[in-house]
Computed example of a mutant assay.
Amino acid sequence: MGRSPGRLLPRTGHHLGGSHNRHGGGRVTVNGTAFVGVDTVTFTDSAAATATAVFSPLSDTQLVATVPGGLAAGAGTITVHTCGGNSNAQAFTLT
Rank of each mutant, 00 (worst) to 15 (best):
M1V: 04
G2H: 02
R3P: 01
P5A: 15
P5G: 15
R7Q: 13
R7E: 15
L8C: 11
L8D: 13
L8N: 13
L9I: 13
L9M: 12
P10L: 12
R11M: 08
T12E: 00
T12K: 01
H14R: 12
H15G: 10
L16T: 11
L16G: 05
S19A: 13
H20S: 13
H20P: 02
H20W: 09
H20R: 13
H20T: 06
N21P: 01
N21I: 07
N21A: 12
G26Q: 09
T29D: 01
F35R: 03
D39A: 06
T40D: 15
T40Q: 15
T40P: 00
V41S: 10
V41D: 07
V41G: 10
T42V: 15
T42P: 00
F43L: 14
F43S: 07
D45Q: 10
A47R: 11
A49W: 01
T50C: 10
T50A: 14
T52H: 00
T52S: 11
T52C: 00
A53V: 04
A53M: 05
A53Q: 04
F55N: 08
F55E: 07
S56N: 09
P57M: 12
P57T: 15
P57R: 15
S59R: 11
S59V: 08
T61I: 02
A65I: 03
T66I: 13
V67E: 01
G70F: 03
G70C: 04
L71R: 10
A72T: 14
A72W: 07
A73V: 11
A73R: 14
G74R: 08
G76M: 06
G76D: 11
T77K: 05
I78C: 02
V80I: 12
V80F: 07
H81L: 11
H81F: 01
H81G: 00
H81S: 12
C83E: 14
A91G: 07
A91N: 07
F92G: 04
L94G: 07
T95G: 06
T95M: 04
